[in-house]
């Protein structure tokens, strides 16, 4: 009951402030800005608790975003990569001659992709494993070398960028103890345990630092939204 009362008082105050702003400021005359502003407030309302405004905004957002991504994918995958080359630009016909390779380059992935739909049948549902196997295999093979290059080689090389200084010592010490923390096949006790413990300290300090580093960037996002509400919508600040 007490909570109710607080809520009502709070809402009344907010509405009064809001009306005051509407009168004092120069509210936007663009209907889309009004819609965007109301949706913004609806989303933030969930910070208090689940409510009809949030539910409305959430379902709208999901619906719009699916519709949007389907449109984009439909265009990138089907129109650009299948329909156009097969029927419009006809990449497989060069100087009146039919070439099998460019033709297969479009037809094979289309057929593999079609196997996705096999999941709707009861008996041939296993065929979906073929496109899955294809995609997972490709990316597994693709990720190995760049990840070696960027993570193992680049990180080892940068660690070895040393000078006779305390910083270099801390760097090497930190990298090694962190790596020791990720030892799985030995129990973390004795010397190994102590080293791994230092490793987790390093990890925690690093996480804290990167947390602190991000805070301001996140707050500036909020300032951006507040700016939209107060400047673009209500026109209170200029």
């Amino acid at each position: 009951m007490k909570e109710r009362k607080g809520l009502i008082i709070g809402s009344v105050i907010l509405i009064i402030i809001f009306i005051g702003m509407l009168i004092k400021g120069e509210p936007s005359k663009n209907i889309m800005v009004w819609i965007a502003a109301i949706l913004t407030l609806s989303i933030y309302s969930f910070l208090y608790r689940d409510n009809i405004f949030y539910k409305f905004a959430e379902h709208l957002f999901v619906g719009v975003s699916v519709g949007y991504s389907v449109s984009v994918v439909y265009q990138n995958a089907f129109i650009r990569r299948v329909f156009d080359p097969l029927f419009i630009t006809r990449t497989y016909i060069v100087e009146g001659q039919f070439h099998i390779l460019p033709f297969l380059a479009v037809v094979i992935p289309t057929l593999i992709g079609l196997l996705m739909v096999s999941v709707f049948t009861k008996r041939q549902a296993w065929l979906i494993r073929i496109p899955i196997a294809f995609v997972v295999g490709s990316y597994a093979g693709m990720s190995i070398s760049p990840s070696f290059q960027a993570n193992i080689f680049e990180q080892t090389r940068s660690t070895l960028h040393i000078a006779l200084s305390i910083s270099s010592f801390i760097m090497i010490f930190g990298v090694i103890t962190t790596l020791v923390y990720f030892f799985f096949s030995k129990e973390h006790k004795g010397f190994l345990g102590r080293t791994a413990n230092v490793g987790i300290w390093f990890i925690m300090i690093a996480f804290g630092a990167s947390f602190g580093y991000t805070v301001m960037a996140r707050i500036s996002l909020l300032i951006g939204r507040m700016n939209f509400l107060l400047y673009d919508w209500l026109g209170v600040i200029k």
């Binding site: 660690t159 760097m171 930190g174 962190t178 490793g199 390093f202 990890i203």
Partner: peptide, 14 residues
């Protein structure tokens, strides 16, 4: 220190 732990994690992830 931040970079040291990050490097250790990245090597482990790789």
């Amino acid at each position: 220190p931040q970079m040291a732990a990050k490097r250790g994690i990245l090597i482990g992830v790789a």
